[in-house]
Design a protein around this nucleic acid. Structure first.
Length: 191
DNA sequence: GAGTAGATCCTCT
DNA sequence: GAGGATCTACTCA
């Protein structure tokens, strides 16, 4: 079952980041259906968060999506060669988003191996934000898609895992954000 | 296994 | 014109 649009419009982006752990991310791109269980996320808390692209109310052609209503994708290019996939959350004009940093591959694994030029199947296939977009075929063309559409969507999952299996840590790779780099906004599933 | 250099390009100043 | 929400391959041990 796809998550309803209302799921994404909650004002509490940190809560959404936690709830996305264990959900299933699907992509249907170039006629290939792939999916993975979301194992790692990070919350980016809008205008008050120095690590966020929308810090201080910054708004540009790139970050405009973050100001839209929750339930859209935000894909952008990092370090000139990696696409990063975010879920836009919150009501209109509240620029919060959740970065999806890791997946455990479920279906479409042959396709993911082909895209990433790998041969063995293990969780390392999609264990980083740049890697999972490559494996799922996500590019800048996937920016600003509805997550209730038919190219990129997230479904709930009946799997029961305990809340204590979710680890909470500080975020990664944002040393430039000063003290906000220490906020406990990263969630990951232990195995 | 650990540490580091290099790739590469869009966005905002 | 600088720098970044990263990854891979290569070195050295």
């Amino acid at each position: 079952m796809k998550l309803p649009i209302t799921f994404y419009q909650n004002e509490d982006v940190v809560s959404i980041a936690r709830q996305l752990i264990g959900k299933i991310l699907y992509s249907s791109i170039d006629g290939q259906l792939c999916s993975g269980l979301i194992s790692e996320t990070e919350a980016y808390a809008g205008i008050t968060d120095k690590a966020s692209h929308a810090y201080g109310g910054r708004r540009s052609a790139r970050t405009d999506v973050m100001y839209a209503e929750g339930g859209l994708s935000y894909v952008y290019l990092c370090y000139g060669m990696h696409h990063l996939f975010n879920v836009v959350t919150g009501p209109r004009d509240v620029p919060t988003a959740v970065l999806v940093r890791g997946l455990w591959p479920l279906t479409g694994i042959d396709c993911m191996l082909d895209r990433t030029k790998k041969t063995n199947i293990h969780t390392k296939l999609t264990d980083g934000p740049g890697k999972l977009t490559k494996a799922l075929g996500i590019t800048l063309n996937c920016n600003r898609l509805s997550l209730t559409g038919n190219q990129l969507w997230i479904e709930s999952n009946n799997n029961n895992f305990r809340q204590e299996d979710i680890l909470v840590t500080k975020r990664i790779g944002i040393a430039y954000a000063g003290e906000d780099a220490d906020l406990p906004y990263r969630f990951l599933l232990s195995r």
